[in-house]
């Protein structure tokens, strides 16, 4: 059942199901994203979480920060965990063996929503196989990648989501290195190419866009992938209070474009139309440099010998932005 959220005041009526006194860093985007996702619905939610910051900081014995059922198994299996909880739910529903409170919800048209949260390490890297398998099989669940572009939980090592030029503990900038050498993996397109009915990129700073996409995702039948920008005060090295500002810089520079890819499928699941919608267009597209300058992980790029990486960044962002616009115009 879609929750009516016309504006922020209405959204603030939500009673959180994610609890305080968890151990996430002050100013962590992960928490903001989790709140916005859970508060996007009044239906029951069941959560699976990959090993990572969110997991180690919200379920440290003897405390849980979850007012919904929650499971963590390992680093690489959040997708199959959520997918199989979904399968177990479907079996029990079919057999008429759901617990009474859950059955009551179902009868009211409020089916549980099953959500996996994982970082970029658990998504782009070690959990990719499980994620790909679960999407191919078409289970009914939502997978939210909390993308902070680094293995933050283990002390800031590079992942395949780390963007070029970022200094991490395994791609440090040094006398002869500008930091990470590879461009970030295009996870949104990769997941859309799995044929998932709904795939979107979001930022917690654009809460309404995020909530709307999550709501759309909850309404479709099949696996949904949400790639959420998660500014990391610890590893991007900006001040905790700047989390939202840094997120906005990412969005307004089009480093983190907000868009969705919808694979329209007929009753047999055959995709007859794919469309890409850009859901936020910055009024003034700001230079990438401003985004980079706000994060000390890129500080070394401003040295003369590394300036070419900033130029490369701008080119890459402009090219992607043009590509997205072309796809949107072409309706593919």
């Amino acid at each position: 059942m879609v929750k009516k959220i016309k504006n922020l005041k209405e959204f603030s009526l939500s009673n959180d199901r994610f609890e305080g006194a968890n151990l996430m860093c002050p100013g962590c985007s992960h928490n903001i994203i989790v709140r916005e996702v859970l508060n996007a619905t009044n239906d029951p939610v069941i959560v699976a979480t990959a090993t990572g910051c969110l997991e180690v900081c919200t379920a440290v014995y003897p405390k849980t920060s979850w007012d919904v059922s929650w499971i963590h198994i390992g680093f690489e299996n959040a997708a199959v965990a959520a997918a199989t909880v979904s399968a177990a739910y479907e079996v029990m529903k079919r057999k008429g063996k759901l617990p009474p409170a859950t059955q009551k919800m179902v009868d009211e048209g409020r089916e549980p929503k099953i959500v996996a949260f994982a970082g970029d390490g658990g998504t782009y890297d070690i959990g990719f196989q499980s994620l790909s398998g679960a999407f191919e099989r078409g289970h009914n669940f939502m997978y939210v990648c909390l993308d902070n572009e680094v293995y933050a939980n283990t002390g800031g090592q590079r992942s395949s989501s780390t963007p070029i030029g970022a200094s991490t503990t395994t791609s440090p900038a040094g006398k002869v290195s500008y930091g990470e050498k590879m461009m970030k993996k295009s996870m949104v397109e990769i997941m859309a190419d799995h044929g998932a009915p709904y795939v979107a990129q979001v930022s917690p700073s654009k809460w309404k866009d995020l909530v709307k996409k999550v709501q759309k995702g909850f309404e479709v039948n099949g696996p949904v992938y949400i790639n959420a920008q998660s500014a990391c005060t610890t590893e991007w090295k900006h001040a905790p209070e700047d989390t939202i500002e840094v997120s906005d810089l990412g969005v307004d520079s089009c480093v983190w474009p907000l868009y969705e890819i919808i694979n329209e499928r007929d009753e047999h699941g055959i995709i007859y139309n794919t469309k890409l919608n850009i859901t936020y267009r910055p009024k003034n597209k700001i230079p990438v440099e401003e985004y980079l300058a706000a994060q000390p992980r890129f500080r070394h790029l401003f040295k003369p010998e590394n300036r070419h990486i900033i130029d490369l960044w701008q080119k890459a962002v402009d090219t992607k932005w043009e590509y997205l616009q072309k796809r949107e115009e072409a309706g593919v």
């Binding site: 499971i71 199959v80 199989t84 909880v85 479907e90 079919r94 057999k95 196989q129 499980s130 398998g133």
Partner: peptide
């Protein structure tokens, strides 16, 4: 009657069993 899920690895097979069992 139950569900049969042909997963993409044994790691996922056991992970799926864990999640399903925890689901009750």
């Amino acid at each position: 009657d139950g569900d049969f899920i042909m997963v993409e690895s044994e790691h996922s097979a056991m992970s799926g069993c864990v999640a399903a069992s925890a689901a009750g």
